[in-house]
Amino acid sequence: MVQKILDYKCKRANASGFNEKTITGLQLEFPKSYNDAGTMAAISIAIKKEEGSPVCLLPFCHTVEAETLGGIINLSDGKFGPRAATYAYTSVEELLHLSDIDFNQGRIGEVLKACQMIKSQGETIVLEVSGFFTILNSLIDVTKIFKAWRKNVELVDKIFSFLAKNLYSFIEEAKKAGVAMVSYADPAGSVNIIGPKYTELVARNFTVPFLKKTSDLADDNFIIHLCPKTSLILLSLGVAERKTIDLSQRINYIEACLKAIGREKIIGQACIKDTQAVLSHGKITSLQLV
């Protein structure tokens, strides 16, 4: 019997691109705003100031990882944000031949450089990392993944293991670049999209082992944040448990996350993009993987 897996209703994940005010106010140029380290760093710092956020967020889209893996991305005019122009791969087998990511190349290299630049200005950086389905969704028609799963489980296992390995390396590089918090999100892998069977399969076989390994990177300067959609899946399945940390003061959610650095390995009860969220009770929840 499959457990009832709860879905966190999120509107923030459904937004992409910059708003008109930001585009005109910061005189953004495209595609430079998405692929040049210096420009990205300047925009991120400006947005932080404009929103009164305690952190700088990068990157500005969910296509960086996919592009590095060969995804064909339309960097657009900014209003709608970067998105897959077309599927780069037509068969699941093609994904088996992907090479490990070179973090010195392309847009992913620029994002890491931007992190270093922001850090050198004394700012705190949160790097958003896309999950398995969000990456695959920009590479291939995911129906093909589901079909392959029914007929060739080993093939899909190899692809997910490859992605997990490369995502881990990305997070390692992010830590080296001075990122204080990596926020992992996989909105395309929501339970209301892929259903409970595949949600459980991915969570147990890939997300949990990946997070167990990745959370070992957490230390006095680094922590893993989960999109609440992922948190709720793990909690619903009983593969993670909640632990409450009482900060004894009304506090901004992101500030509370930063206070958990050095104390916890994984947190994630609200959206990291919601820079104005406040924990009025002063309590933040961490996740302990079972």
Partner: peptide, 12 residues
């Protein structure tokens, strides 16, 4: 009983 992945494969 079925979710989106199953529906898509059935449609194939």
């Amino acid at each position: 009983e079925y979710f989106i992945p199953e529906l898509l494969i059935c449609s194939d």
